[in-house]
Amino acid sequence: MAYSDKVLDHYNNPRNVGSLDKKDPSVGTGLVGAPECGDVMKLQIKVNADTGIIEDAKFKTFGCGSAIASSSLATEMLKGKTVEEALAIKNTELVNELSLPPVKIHCSVLAEDAIKAAIQDYKAKAETPAPAATA
């Protein structure tokens, strides 16, 4: 199978690889997929509580080149967006940008799921106050 130049670029130079502190209340973590299905994505966002803007995004992905490219591109798109804007990101944007073939659409769906899961995790944390330090 031939890969698009953009997929190859993200595979060879993945953007924003890494991890943020899961316990930080300003960080939301999404972990989607399953090893037996051949792809797992971990996507994290760091949100400025005052502005609601996503200041940082990181990912790690176990999966094919298209899955790596989808999550790499997703982190690029997230940075600078508000949480609400991020929720509006659709997998089709990833498909178009990366020229994914039909057989790889599920990679973009997984990346969209990862974004939503990370935001959900962030919101859940914001609603429940951080546990008080035990004496």
Binding site: P14, V17, S19, L31, V32, G33, A34, P35, E36, C37, V40, M41, K42, K60, T61, F62, I68, H106, L110, D113
Partner: peptide, 24 residues
């Protein structure tokens, strides 16, 4: 493996078989 969330989890001592994965 630097890119792999699974490798990271294993290195943190997480047993991958005990994780509740969302199969898709």
């Amino acid at each position: 493996r630097e890119l792999s969330p699974l490798y990271e989890m294993v290195k943190e001592g997480i047993d991958l078989t005990k994780v509740e994965w969302a199969a898709h």
